[in-house]
Simulated scan of single mutants.
Amino acid sequence: METALVRIYKELDKWKHRHLLLLADEQESMVEKYLASGTMYVLEDSGVKAECVVTDEGNHVLEIKNIAVMPKSQGYGYGKKLIGFLVKQYAGNYDYIQGGTGDSPLTIPFYEHCGFTRYDVRKNFFLDNYDHVIVEGGKQLVDMVLLHRKI
């Protein structure tokens, strides 16, 4: 992983990695809402391993709207490397980087391992914004948990 490379994809290329985007957010209409205004980063290491999309939320806050690692590449530190890249990339321009996720045993520990802490909850986010029930790690997602870390 020492040679992993993070590339920036411009708007026209973003859907090229549809399979990764939809791993993290399975409703295409939700992805489309932030994809046009977000910046997409793709981590390559002998092929594409991970991606993320970030947006400027104002007030010096950068938000991770989508982050996913290829299933066969999970557990090797690619997601954490991508978070580290974002922190370095945006240091000095933002005070916080935040992410929102379902209260899932699969994603909350990842964010916490990357130095994020919980700070808020958006009640019924998944019920109000998705057209189907979303289950992750055997648990139906209802509320969005917001986590952040200082940059």
Results as ranks from 00 to 15, higher is better:
K88A: 09
F110C: 07
A36E: 15
H60V: 11
I151Y: 05
A50P: 08
T3L: 13
D143V: 13
L146P: 02
P109H: 08
K80I: 10
T39C: 05
G79M: 01
I64W: 00
K49N: 09
E32Y: 14
F110K: 00
L62A: 12
G75R: 03
G84V: 06
A91Q: 12
G75P: 09
D95R: 08
T107A: 10
Y130F: 10
A24P: 01
Q89R: 14
D128E: 11
V6I: 10
L12G: 13
S46R: 08
L141M: 09
K72V: 07
I8Y: 09
I83V: 14
P105E: 15
H17R: 03
I83D: 01
V87P: 01
G102S: 10
K72T: 12
K10Q: 06
I64A: 06
I67T: 12
V61E: 07
K123S: 05
L106K: 10
H113D: 15
G58Q: 08
A24F: 04
Q27M: 06
Y90Q: 05
Q98H: 01
T3N: 13
K150R: 08
Y111C: 01
G58I: 07
R7E: 10
G38S: 02
I67E: 03
G102W: 05
L23D: 05
D128C: 12
H132T: 15
G77C: 10
I108E: 03
Y41T: 00
G138C: 06
H148R: 14
T55G: 13
V48P: 03
P105W: 11
G99K: 15
L146C: 08
D95C: 11
G100P: 00
R18T: 07
Y76L: 12
E63W: 01
L86Q: 00
F116N: 00
Y111T: 00
F126E: 08
N124T: 06
A91E: 09
S73Y: 04
A91F: 12
K139P: 11
L23K: 02
P71L: 04
K49F: 05
T101A: 00
L127G: 10
Y130E: 02
E2V: 07
V121C: 15
Y90I: 05
H132I: 14
G47F: 02
E51G: 06
D143K: 00
V31N: 03
V142K: 03
I64V: 09
H17P: 14
D128F: 02
M144C: 14
S37Y: 07
D143P: 14
L106C: 08
K33I: 04
N129I: 13
Y130R: 11
K49E: 11
T101G: 00
L22S: 02
G75M: 10
T3Q: 14
A4S: 06
V61D: 10
V142F: 04
L141Y: 04
V61S: 09
D120T: 06
D120I: 01
T55E: 04
L127H: 11
L20N: 02
L43H: 05
C52L: 12
